[in-house]
Structure formats: structure tokens, C-alpha cells
Simulated assay, not measured.
Amino acid sequence: MSTLTSLPAGVPVQPEALELVREPVPAEAIASGAPATGVHPLGSFGGVGLGVWEMTEGGMFDTEADEIFLVLSGAATVDFLAEDGTVTGTAALGPHTLMRLAAGTRTRWTVTKTLRKVYLTT
């Protein structure tokens, strides 16, 4: 595993090989199971943060940041939630899925196979 803490210029990186320290999702955010998440920030470029994020099997609620991500591996669904908790839409995620999330969006992530993504966020 790599101990890379920033993305050096001119050096190729394999995001699936980066070491992520996983932590349990806080109890108040758990939707199902006992998921854990890990993150490996790679730096900030022109005010945009870059990193790798992972979630193990299970479900969690989140309020999103403004983000674009590309799924590297795994499988999940993301439910988009109204203020009252009703589902307003669902997106299926798998390898090579590219998606944008808007800041403040309420979501429920349900991961069926550990999901790893590369993200850009402001």
C-alpha cells in the first residue's frame, strides 16, 4: 500500500492502491448495517480538493458537498431525499460512473460492494 499524502507532479498514482484508514459511520448517520468510510486527501489544486473515498457495505445518510466523482470499484445506490425523507430519485453507481452532487443535497447511500471513488470538491 502507498503512503502518498499529496499528488506529486509527473508521478503516476494508482488510486485503488492507496491506503485508506476506515472509521465507523457515526450512529446517527447509519441507515443500515455497520458501514465504515475512509478518505485519502491528495491535495488542493486551484481551490478544488482531490482525494479518494471509500465506503464498506451498508447504508448511511449524508448531506453532500459540491462534488464531482468517478467510481473506481464497487456497487451502490444513492437515494436523493426531500426534506421529509421521501425519495425523489435514485442513482445506481458502479465502476466508471461519473456523477456530480450539489452542495446541501440530502442523500442515503446503500453500498452492496465496497465502493471506492476519486472525488473533486470545492
Rank of each mutant, 00 (worst) to 15 (best):
P12I: 13
E54D: 04
A76C: 01
F80V: 04
L18W: 02
G47H: 05
G58Y: 09
G38C: 07
W109S: 02
H40Y: 00
D62E: 14
Y119F: 13
P24K: 03
V48H: 06
A17D: 13
T86M: 00
T77Y: 05
A17N: 13
L42K: 06
S32Y: 11
T5F: 03
M99C: 05
A36C: 12
R116E: 01
W53M: 10
K117A: 02
G85D: 10
S32W: 11
E28T: 09
G94D: 09
S6P: 03
A82I: 05
T37Q: 09
K113S: 15
E54R: 00
R100W: 10
L98M: 08
T90A: 11
L50D: 02
L115K: 03
E28M: 09
T97N: 09
F69S: 09
Y119I: 07
E28D: 14
G10M: 12
P26C: 03
V25W: 07
A27P: 07
A75Y: 00
R108V: 01
G46K: 07
R22K: 13
R108C: 12
G33Y: 09
L20E: 06
V25Y: 07
L101Y: 11
S6V: 12
L93D: 02
P35V: 03
T112V: 06
V21P: 01
P26S: 07
E83A: 14
L72P: 07
L4V: 14
T110S: 15
E23T: 15
V25R: 02
T3G: 15
L72Y: 00
V87T: 14
M60W: 04
V11P: 01
M55R: 07
A102Q: 14
G89C: 03
L115P: 05
A17L: 14
V71Q: 04
E28R: 12
L42V: 07
L115Y: 00
S44M: 10
L72N: 04
L7P: 00
Y119L: 08
T114D: 08
E23V: 13
G58H: 06
T114W: 00
V25I: 13
R108N: 10
P95R: 11
P95N: 06
T112E: 09
R100H: 15
P26Y: 12
T121Q: 10
P35K: 03
P95V: 05
E23W: 02
S32I: 08
S2W: 00
L4K: 05
A31G: 05
F69V: 00
L4M: 08
T5K: 11
T77P: 11
D84I: 06
R100T: 12
E57A: 11
W53L: 11
L72S: 06
Q14Y: 11
Q14K: 12
I30M: 10
F69L: 10
